[in-house]
Amino acid sequence: MTPADGVVVVRGLKKRYGALTAVDDVSFAIPEGQVFGLLGPNGAGKTSTLEMIEGLRVPDAGEIFVQGIDARRHPAKIKAIIGVQLQNSSYFDLLTVRETLGLFGSLFPVHLPEHALIPRFELAEKADTRVKDLSGGQRQRLSVALALVNDPRVVFLDEPSAGLDPQARRILWETIASFREEGRTVVLTTHYMDEAEFLSDDLVIMDHGRIIAHGTPRELVRRYLPGAVIELDRPAGQRIGDLKLEALRRAEERENLWTLESDRLEDTLVDLVQWSRERSVPLEGLRTRGATLEDVFLELTGRSLREDNGEARPSEGRERRG
């Protein structure tokens, strides 16, 4: 990989906090105009990776190029040209939306005027409302609007939909898709697989600081789970361990739901129906679907994306530089 391989190029990036290796030899190249997703559970190293590119954290090793500029040597140049939305950031509570956009705009050599940003992020009604009086969704839209204030070619969004209701998330997805239509490159972290699947042209799955898979959502599913998934309510009195079905790759029980991954859906289904007849067990809530990124993650790590993996690890947004 060379700096010319993409608008963002990262090579061998490493970051340690004491004994914890938060980012462990991460490399990727993002072609211009794509939405690039970093998918992974909390503590996977997504935020640390992003913040090193943004010049907010100093890597222990590795190289970073943004638009051909060496980000480790010229962090100020990078900060002037990229757009950034951070997790858990706040602004001056007593300034209005319009004043906040104007203030941040004035910090950049080139900036979009407030009157262009306000309607685009559906903040027109709230333009003269103080930041402290905004709802969570409005505040998030302001955060994303601020990422666009310097008219950047590359926009970094860190968990942009965290804490939003489904409708607000949909609006946000449309906004992010519109960035791509304008030719901007978007780098996005998320732990929602549907978000990564919907938005990403290309994505990496991270776990424990490492990239464990890289490809388009479709490629990843095809590569790791070519079959399909059968889901059904747990039949009363039955144990998932007793299932012996044709072409069954993996069977999981969670919250009274059985999830059966199959290499050949037809064969597994026939067996399942026969099994239910033999035992006179009704198959309730039965449905089949193609595999998703969630299943890929499960396949790769043995854990669910949103499952609390029980490790005492600080959430990334609150890590402090020692």
Partner: peptide, 14 residues
């Protein structure tokens, strides 16, 4: 604490 400083560091403002 609330990330205000951090947000400003992500801009070219010294």
């Amino acid at each position: 604490e609330r990330g205000v400083l951090r947000r400003f560091f992500a801009t070219p403002l010294p």
